[in-house]
Design a protein around this nucleic acid. Structure first.
Lengths: 158, 158
DNA sequence: TTTGAAAAAGCTTTACA
DNA sequence: TGTAAAGCTTTTTCAAA
């Protein structure tokens, strides 16, 4: 219910930067009614507090030769072993995201690769690295990804 | 096997910007052995070609009051109806990503919200908006998300 | 925390190879 | 495509409130 430790101006800055990570301090200032150096300090503080964890370009995977995306759901083969899947899988570069989840499976991975053959190879490496069984769900269409979800209501018109 | 239409220098730039979307053209130039204005031109071209689709800040959802993430897997209730789930769901702001998938379900959504109660409310809105049944998988831990997967081998040491 | 001003750094264009 | 140089804008730091 409460939204801890982030006051409205900072939320606004976060929301703007989530949408355009290259927005200049000058423009952020205009959008928030602060001076350039005031926003600058706030952004640095947001970075220090780790509320902003980084900045990234959104890449068109389909067009750069990595058109195949899939979810790999993971189940440990031996539940008595220590569960360190995330660490064991970290070195595999095709894994974009790694979550542990509640439900029938223990982990979900989002992976990207060049072809079905590459996916088959990737699956083998995942199973071997973490001693798990896998269930793979191929992505057919990406309608959208990583839309900003900041819990902020956007600008009034004008 | 072939990686279409992106030559090595552009791949390098894409990879660097995926990791740091605020990197300056000067630094990109240093990293690629090009002049500032040469990289500048390349980046603009990459944006025009839509290989770079945008820039965003990575927000710490847990700390800004949106700590709950979940996957919602979707199955249409009436398979004879036209399948326009993505369009019907687009206005729901808690949906960060929307994929159609091969497998038992038709779509997977990644959503973020403030609390279990908010998730329950969100699920009701998803079902109502798209006339679907849902299966929800709650995220327990996010080990990492949105690691850059560019298919580029990174820098030599030095 | 904010501002305003000044210095440093970076961006963008132009002219040209 | 590329470079170099010039002019302009933004970033960053600082003293003061």
């Amino acid at each position: 219910m409460n939204q801890p430790a982030v006051e409205p101006t900072d939320r606004k800055i976060l929301s703007l930067l989530a949408r355009d990570g290259r927005m200049s301090f000058t423009d952020l200032g205009r959008a928030t009614g602060l001076s350039t150096s005031a926003v600058h300090q706030r952004v640095k503080r947001l970075e220090q507090r780790d509320l902003i964890q980084g900045y990234g370009a959104t890449i068109n995977h389909a067009e750069i030769g990595v058109p195949l995306a899939a979810f790999i759901s993971i189940r440990p083969i031996d539940p008595s072993q220590p569960d360190d899947c995330a660490a064991r899988l970290e070195h595999i570069e095709e894994i974009e995201s790694c979550w542990s989840v509640a439900g029938e499976e223990s982990y979900v991975l989002l992976v990207r690769c060049t072809s079905p053959a590459a996916l088959e190879d990737l699956l083998a490496r995942v199973r071997a690295a973490a001693n798990v069984s896998t269930r793979t769900t191929i992505v057919l269409t990406t309608y959208y990804e990583n839309r900003p979800v900041t819990g902020t209501v956007e600008d009034e018109p004008g």
